[in-house]
């Protein structure tokens, strides 16, 4: 049997979920030298293009038009999509800005902050448009499995990976679940 091909995607989030994945330490090394091939992963590899894979793992919430576009492409390229972390599963802390008006947020950050001199909200075509409301991954595309946590524990991620390698859609047992 060939290696399972896995890609990861990082939308609007803090990268903590990817760090938790790295926190598998030796277990990750073992997986990578055995059953798993990481194809595209922003912090780990240099592959830029979406390539068809068996499993796609996505961290972060959908906060910009670019997030949405990337997510759709990613979804099209993976057989199973796994959302990891509270941002991907629920919207998480990235969605906390939904309690405020988008323009209020942008204006605070780029104009009103005390250290800013001559501020303006970046609006050129080089920066993607910010969505009015931050959404969970499952609100945009179909998701096969959710592994919540902020971040999910390495143990929960390892469980999910092992289930996937066994050909099952992981459903995290209640005793491994954590939203913090």
């Amino acid at each position: 049997m060939g290696k399972a091909r896995i890609s990861t995607l990082w939308l609007s989030g803090c990268s903590g979920c990817h760090m938790s994945l790295l926190d598998l330490d030796e277990a990750l090394v073992e997986l990578l030298s055995g059953k798993v091939e990481i194809v595209k992963s922003p912090p780990l590899t240099d592959v830029k293009e979406h390539t068809p894979v068996d499993v796609g793992i996505v961290e972060g919430a959908v906060a910009t038009e670019e997030d949405e576009e990337e997510l759709r492409k990613f979804r099209d390229n993976c057989k199973i999509l796994v959302a990891i972390g509270d941002c991907a599963c629920f919207g998480g802390i990235t969605s906390y800005r939904n309690l405020f008006d988008k323009d209020e947020v942008l204006s605070r950050v780029f104009v009103e902050t005390e250290s800013v001199v001559d501020g303006k909200v970046p609006a050129s075509r080089y920066v993607p448009k910010i969505l009015d409301k931050v959404k969970a991954v499952g609100h945009i595309v179909k998701v096969e499995a959710h592994i919540p946590g902020c971040p999910p524990s390495p143990r929960a991620l390892l469980y999910a990976l092992k289930e996937l390698l066994e050909g099952r859609i992981p459903i995290l047992p209640s005793d491994m679940a954590s939203f913090e």
């Binding site: 910009t64 670019e66 802390i93 906390y96 947020v105 942008l106 605070r108 950050v109 993607p128």
Partner: peptide
């Protein structure tokens, strides 16, 4: 040469 960063989450507001 320009390095663009294309994400914002708004901690300073929320």
């Amino acid at each position: 040469a320009r390095f663009h960063v294309v994400q914002i989450r708004g901690f300073e507001k929320f």
